[in-house]
Simulated scan of single mutants.
Amino acid sequence: MQLPSFGDDLVNALNVRVLGEDDADCTIVLAHGFGCTQSLWDEVLPSLLSYPVEGGMRVMVFDWPGSASTSFDFAPTSRLYHVFADLLVSLLQELEIRSCIYVGHSMSAMIGCLAALTEPALFRKLILVGASPRYLNEEAYYGGFEQDDLNNLFDAMARDFCGWAEGFARAVVGTDAPDVAVRKFESTLSGMQPDTALAMAKAIFLSDFRSDIGSVAKVLDAGSQNGKPSGTANIVVLQTEKDLAVPLLVSDYLKMVLGDRGRVEVLQVEGHLPQLSAPETFNSALRRALLE
């Protein structure tokens, strides 16, 4: 698949930062979700970098194309996730990261799964935050949204993007979340190009990657039996107990599909962005997922 054109310097185009020890055994890749930038991880980085890990640690953060911090044009398509998965693999290869622990938030969760299906050796573990393989309800599956719900969301974005972003930020971050957390997400969300944001939202909310979840768990499990650590979860799902975008029934579905290859932890906080609304709780859960 043809990737978006970023010139000769992919690292600069995506605002990549690599922090920590250059010769560390462990590289953690933090990938943000829709409407965010790498600033989503501002309250996470100090906790990660100060946590003692045998062999050292380094952390990579970056910005997806189309985010508020990117300076180039990008027209999303219905195959957005596949394009971004290929982009992620290219980025890891360019940085010579041969194995990483990937932490994908929201849309980045499924992007990481697709990338791991393509190049499983690059991924030691997947940690999926606020993950959903399917947002639309179907018979025997509850994703949280009816088609009319999504049509109304898309219409609101098209009519008044900034007004929509303000209300969406409060609802998604959480009604009880600190104002500073809501304002931070609203700033990066409203900073997107409206047409790009709408196209990305359609690609995200109309996606279906349920078949890929089971496949990636098996692929990573096979890798564990070929020299990688075994006996631990290859995929960890971190889900808040009240998430407007991803209801708890989705995490129940993921738990069923992953079986022994995965673990689901429900955080006793509200909101789709616990990195902003409850960073201490999130950081503790992330450390548990990293070290198990």
Rank of each mutant, 00 (worst) to 15 (best):
M200V: 08
F6S: 03
Q193F: 01
S230R: 03
S211A: 15
V180L: 11
M60T: 01
L92K: 01
V246W: 00
P76C: 10
E21I: 11
G227W: 09
S284H: 06
F34R: 07
E265F: 01
F72I: 06
A109S: 15
V219T: 12
K125D: 04
S277N: 07
K125S: 11
C100V: 01
L49T: 11
G112C: 02
M110G: 02
A222M: 11
Y135P: 00
Q193S: 03
V18Q: 10
V269A: 14
D212N: 12
L40C: 03
D22K: 15
Y253C: 05
D260C: 15
G130A: 08
D243S: 08
L198R: 13
E241L: 14
K202R: 15
A140P: 00
V266G: 10
F154T: 14
M157L: 15
C26R: 08
L290Y: 00
E138T: 15
S190L: 04
C113N: 05
T118H: 06
V29M: 00
I127T: 01
Q93I: 05
E96T: 11
F161H: 06
D42R: 04
L198I: 13
W164D: 05
S284V: 08
S207Q: 09
Y135A: 10
A156C: 11
A121C: 08
A109M: 08
L254D: 07
S5G: 05
I97C: 08
L220A: 08
Q147T: 12
T196N: 06
N15K: 06
A158T: 13
P279L: 10
F185Y: 12
S207V: 08
V266C: 09
P133E: 09
G191H: 02
V29A: 04
V173Y: 00
L153I: 15
V16Q: 07
T70D: 06
H82S: 14
L48M: 10
D195N: 06
S99N: 09
F62M: 06
D8R: 09
C36V: 03
L238G: 13
K255N: 15
E292P: 01
V182F: 05
L238E: 12
Q38R: 01
E96A: 13
R17A: 14
V182L: 07
S5C: 07
T175V: 14
N15T: 03
V246N: 00
L248H: 07
D195E: 13
A13S: 10
E265G: 08
Q2G: 13
S39R: 03
F72C: 07
E21S: 14
I127F: 00
A13F: 04
P133L: 08
S99K: 10
F282N: 08
